[in-house]
């Protein structure tokens, strides 16, 4: 095993253990699980509506709580090291600063994976429960009995493997946010600033492509301004790359190649984020 691997795996492991010990994970994961458990309280009129609601509700819960976890855990991870001065003993070791950042990111990535897996399993359990109770009610309904074809269609829609792909796309989106939050952490002195900026970036990321198109298409804008907007669009994320998850929720059942654009986009974004954050972090002084 190479020394690099040992250093990376040790710090990743330490980050994971730290996060598992911190309240932030449970403060987010437990409300998320409780939110999911309220799913059976909502009953829609038709099966189609019910399936849509179940999918949306579970995905929405994962998405919101996952976003909070990604941003808060990342922002706190670095600021905790600074506040508790652990960073002095860690960076005093023969460890490159980029290794520190990558390990932090990987640790949080693993925690996110763990959290999304738990929520996915919980969602699947709720799907199974809802399916059973809805079908029992439908079979017992003498006036509108369901045909076996309808039953099959209901089950197929509920258990579509594409839903896992939607979770994977969500994971990639959250990993991108981890990258951005880590980048802001390298310059910020307070985690509150990092969290706020990251949430802003998340919002702007959704508007980016439309705003760019609007600015680039408008006539009266100066060349300089267009350059600025162009440059900003290079840095800011384009969240429309992750809209595939929403399409899946609306019923699309794409192949695996559907994952390539968000996967590639996330990977290359993480590359430049790592380059810039290492640059900043290398020149950062710790007093």
């Amino acid at each position: 095993m190479s020394a690099l691997y040992l250093r990376l795996s040790t710090l990743t492991g330490l980050t994971v253990r730290d996060l598992l010990r911190q309240n932030v994970l449970y403060l987010i994961l437990i409300p998320a699980a409780l939110t999911l458990l309220t799913l059976p309280l909502f009953t829609a009129l038709t099966f189609e509506e019910q399936i849509k609601f179940m999918r949306d509700f579970c995905y929405g819960t994962m998405s919101i709580f996952g976003l909070f976890l990604a941003i808060i855990a990342t922002a706190q991870s670095l600021s905790n090291d600074l506040e508790q001065k652990t960073i002095f003993t860690i960076l005093a070791k023969p460890l490159n600063r980029w290794e520190y950042l990558v390990s932090k990111g990987m640790g949080i990535g693993l925690i996110l994976f763990f959290a999304l897996t738990i929520l996915t399993v919980l969602s699947a359990g709720l799907f199974a429960y809802q399916e059973k109770s809805l079908l029992e009610a439908a079979i017992g309904n003498a006036t509108h009995p369901l045909s076996s074809q309808e039953l099959q269609r209901f089950s197929d829609q509920l258990w579509s493997p594409a839903l896992l792909m939607a979770v994977l796309i969500l994971y990639l989106k959250l990993i991108l946010m981890v990258g951005f939050t880590l980048l802001f952490s390298t310059v910020a002195s307070s985690s509150l600033f990092t969290i706020f900026t990251s949430l802003m970036i998340y919002l702007i990321g959704h508007l980016q492509s439309t705003a760019r198109e609007w600015v680039m298409g408008s006539e009266g804008l100066s060349v300089g301004m267009k350059w600025v907007v162009g440059l900003l669009s290079v840095i800011l994320p384009d969240m429309s790359f992750y809209e595939g998850a929403e399409r899946i929720l609306l019923g699309a059942t794409p192949g695996l190649s559907y994952l390539i654009p968000p996967l590639g986009y996330t990977f290359f974004n993480l590359l430049w984020i790592l380059g810039l954050s290492t640059w900043i972090f290398e020149s950062r002084e710790f007093r």
Partner: peptide, 23 residues
């Protein structure tokens, strides 16, 4: 280290742009 960072930046931006174009 600066070269390493610059390389990552260039490669990252290039890849990002590439994916934006083939979206």
């Amino acid at each position: 280290k600066i070269v390493f960072c610059l390389l990552l930046l260039i490669l990252g931006f290039w890849g990002k742009r590439f994916f934006e174009e083939i979206k």
